[in-house]
Simulated assay, not measured.
Amino acid sequence: MESNKDEGNKAWGKKFWLDLIEKEKFNPYAVGMITLFAVFTLFVVLISVGSGNTSNSTTAEKQIEESPKVDMGSEKRRIYEELIKLEDYHSPSWNALSESLAQSNRYESYSNARKSEDVLINIWSKLRDIKCNTTGDSIFDEKCEEILKQANKAYSAKRMATKELMKWLDDNSPKKLYEAENAMEYAVSEWKSYQMLLAKNFR
């Protein structure tokens, strides 16, 4: 039964694309789905490439003086591994959402968006537990705090984009589509900044 259902979804998706391209049929839902899928495709690419709050200066200086220092190389590997674990945890639900959008399956997209949001909420909680240990290398210690802050912003932006996507899927209006597109574009920007920092300073 599942196989037949999958084939039906794919056939429906194929017909959707042909109607839109060959007949130049205007359908607000269809046009919106294409726009959002393009953004989600970029997200998947960024994930494939990629595969807290910062203390004030006085507090940071005090911690450097009082905290026992750890090896910078070991700390760099630890932070990187922790962040990659979060990506591995996040990617399956996000890719499933992207796939359902590619198939133009509105109901499955909503379900996958809900699952993705739950994962993103858990990631936000897990990020709060990741702390940078002082190494004595002021440049690395600053970059460590920066990457955790940017990771928080990137995943929070994805969560907000997912919420806006669900609103649009639930209420197919031009306003909701506009808000979802804006949220997606912002999330892409934040995710790209996060991946660039990770690649530059931790890989």
Rank of each mutant, 00 (worst) to 15 (best):
S109H: 04
E146H: 04
V119G: 04
Y110L: 07
S100K: 14
K143E: 13
S91H: 08
E145Y: 07
S100I: 07
D137T: 01
S100Y: 09
G136S: 05
L97I: 05
E117I: 14
K143N: 14
S91W: 11
R106F: 10
D118S: 10
L86S: 01
V119W: 05
E82T: 10
T134Q: 01
N152G: 14
E82N: 13
C144M: 11
K85P: 06
Q150I: 05
R128T: 02
S125R: 13
S100V: 08
K131C: 01
E99N: 13
Y155D: 07
Y80H: 08
N133T: 10
N152P: 07
Q103I: 00
Y110H: 06
R114C: 04
D141R: 00
Q103P: 00
S98V: 05
S116E: 12
N112H: 15
K143T: 12
W94T: 10
R77A: 04
N133H: 15
S104N: 15
C144V: 07
L86W: 03
E117W: 06
D88I: 09
E75H: 01
I121P: 00
P92G: 06
C144Y: 06
D118C: 01
R106G: 09
E145D: 04
N122W: 09
R77W: 10
R114Y: 13
L97D: 12
A154D: 03
K153A: 13
L86E: 03
E142N: 07
R128M: 05
C132T: 03
E117L: 10
I123P: 01
D141S: 02
W94D: 04
S100W: 03
W124I: 00
D129H: 11
N152M: 15
A151T: 05
G136M: 03
L148T: 02
Y80E: 07
I147T: 02
E108R: 10
N105V: 07
E75L: 03
C144G: 09
Y110P: 00
N95K: 15
C132N: 06
L120Y: 07
K143C: 09
S138N: 10
K115C: 00
I123D: 03
L86C: 01
K153V: 08
D141N: 02
W124K: 04
E117N: 05
S138R: 11
E146L: 13
Q150D: 08
D137G: 01
E75R: 00
K149F: 13
I121D: 10
E142D: 10
S125W: 14
S125I: 15
V119A: 05
K131R: 09
N105K: 06
T134E: 02
L120P: 00
E82G: 07
A151D: 10
K115I: 08
C144H: 04
I79M: 02
Y80S: 05
K149P: 04
E146C: 05
C144N: 07
S116T: 14
S91F: 10
I121A: 05
I139A: 08
Y110C: 00
N95V: 14
S109T: 12
T135F: 01
T135N: 01
S93R: 11
D129R: 11
R114T: 12
S93W: 09
Y107S: 15
A154I: 02
Y89R: 11
E99G: 13
R106S: 12
N112W: 15
E82D: 14
L120M: 06
Y155N: 09
Y110Q: 07
L86F: 03
L120D: 07
D137R: 01
H90K: 14
Y155E: 10
L83M: 09
A151V: 04
L127C: 01
N112I: 15
R114M: 06
